[in-house]
């Protein structure tokens, strides 16, 4: 089913990948930690290595919880699939696309 309208109803998506240029929107969810109400949303360069993404984006956010332990981060997943992370591989190389949802356990 689609929108009923008096004219051709055709509009571009507000947050399409193109508008973010060389960057991506990426969501990160700390599974099983209810002190965070939800996953977080970052804008990051596609070419950023995963290790740098974790230290410069994910860790400062996760440190909002004083019990956060960087060493304990494990079991990375992208949507429902396992994500075989490597610190030196870029987000694009790991197959992380626009508006992907990453999950880890801590």
């Amino acid at each position: 089913m689609s929108v009923k309208a008096l004219y051709d109803y055709e509009f571009p998506s507000m947050d399409r990948a193109k508008l973010f240029g060389e960057d991506l929107l990426v969501y990160v969810h700390w599974e099983g930690n209810p002190i965070f109400c939800s996953a977080v949303c970052f804008r990051v360069p596609k070419t950023m290595p995963f290790g740098e993404f974790v230290t410069s984006f994910v860790v400062p956010w996760a440190e909002s919880d004083p019990d956060f332990d960087h060493e304990a981060m494990k079991h990375w997943r992208i949507f429902d699939e396992l994500l075989d992370v490597a610190d030196n591989k870029s987000l694009a190389d790991l197959g992380i696309g626009h508006k992907a949802l990453l999950t880890f356990a801590g």
């Binding site: 002190i35 109400c37 939800s38 996953a39 977080v40 949303c41 970052f42 400062p60 440190e63």
Partner: peptide
């Protein structure tokens, strides 16, 4: 002496 706010923006 703390107050936890999330440093980041939520997924909507």
């Amino acid at each position: 002496g703390g107050r936890m706010f999330v440093r980041g923006l939520p997924q909507q």
